Simulated assay, not measured.
Amino acid sequence: MEALLQLHFTAPDDLHTGKINTRQLVHVRTELLPPPIVALVPFDELERRKEEIDSQNPELADETRWVLADEARRREKALQPRMKVVA
């Protein structure tokens, strides 16, 4: 059983499965792309930073892609008009 867990959590660096590794996501969100900075920086600059991170740490590509997609959703939601309830 331990060998199976070891195989699951230690995929080769060049294998991008599209699955998010929680440990790596925490590292990206706390050290490389913290939410307060991500919220303030223009999106094209975030994409440039993502490419920089991916070139230095290819194993984080899935996580950086997820962070940018999450920020794009957040910004899109912020632009949508809110409905007012009138009594």
Rank of each mutant, 00 (worst) to 15 (best):
I20A: 02
R49E: 11
L4A: 11
P58F: 02
A61D: 04
F43R: 12
L32S: 03
N57G: 00
P34L: 11
M83C: 13
L25T: 04
D70K: 10
N21S: 10
A3R: 13
I53V: 01
L25H: 02
P42V: 08
L33H: 06
T10P: 01
R23D: 11
E52A: 09
E2W: 08
R29S: 14
Q24V: 02
N57D: 12
E31D: 14
D14M: 00
D62M: 02
K77F: 09
L32I: 08
Q24D: 09
L40A: 15
Q56W: 07
T17D: 05
E52C: 03
V41W: 02
L60P: 06
P12L: 00
K50P: 00
L15P: 00
E51R: 13
E59D: 13
K19M: 12
L5K: 09
L32P: 02
L33T: 05
T30H: 10
T64A: 06
K50R: 15
V28Y: 05
L7E: 10
I53R: 03
R48L: 11
E31A: 15
F9D: 13
D62W: 03
L40E: 15
I53F: 05
L4G: 04
E59H: 15
V28T: 04
M1I: 10
L15S: 03
P36G: 01
D70I: 00
P36W: 00
E63V: 00
Q24L: 08
A69H: 11
H27G: 09
L32D: 02
R75N: 02
K50M: 14
V85S: 11
R82F: 04
A87M: 11
L7F: 08
E51H: 11
P81A: 08
Q24C: 05
R75V: 00
A78F: 02
M1F: 09
E45D: 12
P42Y: 12
K84E: 14
R29E: 15
R49S: 11
E63M: 04
E59Y: 15
A69D: 14
K84H: 08
A78P: 01
D62N: 12
V38A: 03
R23Q: 12
